[in-house]
Write a protein that binds this DNA or RNA. Structure first.
Length: 242
DNA sequence: AATGACCTCAACCGCAGAACC
DNA sequence: AGGTTCTGCGGTTGAGGTCAT
């Protein structure tokens, strides 16, 4: 499952590491510490580039590395951390002792991302009627409306206009949550979220869904009370939905 | 048994920022 | 202050393994 070892024109070896190479690298790092990667290969007697040595050490030889399957706890933690930090795998890895950023990244791309995709598919399949097929265009229209509104009221220039992302992986979670939120609102029997009025209250901006419901972008929940927001809240809500 | 599609994960690549001179 | 080198990060690749036909 590893690349076949090859030697390039500069005599630098690439591809899979042999156990002899591992021993040399391990021995050198244990003696001198994991630094000066550029000089390490020649000092340790390895025909590798420094980068390759560093990677091998960090992802395979470093003491304390955990091997084997991920536990449910680890998976939950990765989900949460990914929601917080996105694809900043080094950040995620600092919270999971014994796991490397590379390993977590691979695990995410190979398993967890697909699980999320499957979940969102299966959660929408039983009630396809609830998912509006034109939600993206609705959202786009609302965005344009909102952008125009902002530029009129707050003097926001055109270059700062918002854009709708409907397919990039980084926004999938938010978009899924948005779909879910719209469904949830439909289910509540209060009507069509997109047709609910955004209202003015004096000089302050308020949004009132139907006069008795508020939507929290943080937890994706509706609650039965009027919520009047500041402009910043309004921006935050809108951006978090996109 | 053969073979092709898909999956896994170690390793590589390119870039950005930090550190050094 | 500016150029060079080093380090670290995230995205991508590709060879071997596994599964389905």
């Amino acid at each position: 499952m590893v690349r076949a070892p090859i030697v390039d024109k500069d005599g630098v070896k690439r591809g899979a590491w042999s156990s002899e190479e591992d021993d040399k690298l391990m021995g050198y790092v244990q003696k001198h510490g994991p630094r000066k990667w550029r000089q390490l290969p020649s000092l340790a007697g390895l025909a590798r580039c420094g980068k390759s040595c560093r990677l091998r050490w960090l992802n395979y030889l470093r003491p304390g590395l955990k091997k084997g399957n991920y536990t449910d706890e680890e998976n939950d933690l990765i989900y949460k951390l990914h929601e917080m930090h996105g694809n900043r795998w080094s950040m995620v890895a600092t919270k999971l002792s014994g796991r490397t950023d590379n390993e977590i990244k691979n695990h995410w791309n190979a398993h967890l991302k697909k699980q999320i995709e499957r979940k969102s598919e299966s959660s929408t399949q039983p009630k396809p009627k609830k998912l509006r097929p034109n939600i993206a265009s609705d959202l786009e229209a609302k965005t344009e409306e909102f952008t125009g509104y902002c530029s009129t009221k707050f003097g926001i220039v055109e270059s700062s206009s918002l854009s709708v992302q409907t397919s990039s992986s980084s926004s999938d979670a938010n978009f899924g949550r948005l779909n879910w939120a719209v469904e949830e609102y439909d289910r509540s029997g209060y009507g069509d979220l997109w047709n609910e009025p955004f209202m003015w209250d004096g000089d302050d901006v308020s949004y009132v869904l139907d006069g008795s419901m508020q939507f929290s972008a943080d937890n994706g929940m509706f609650s039965p009370q009027v919520h009047e927001t500041t402009y910043d809240d309004y921006i935050d809500l809108f951006c978090s939905l996109l």
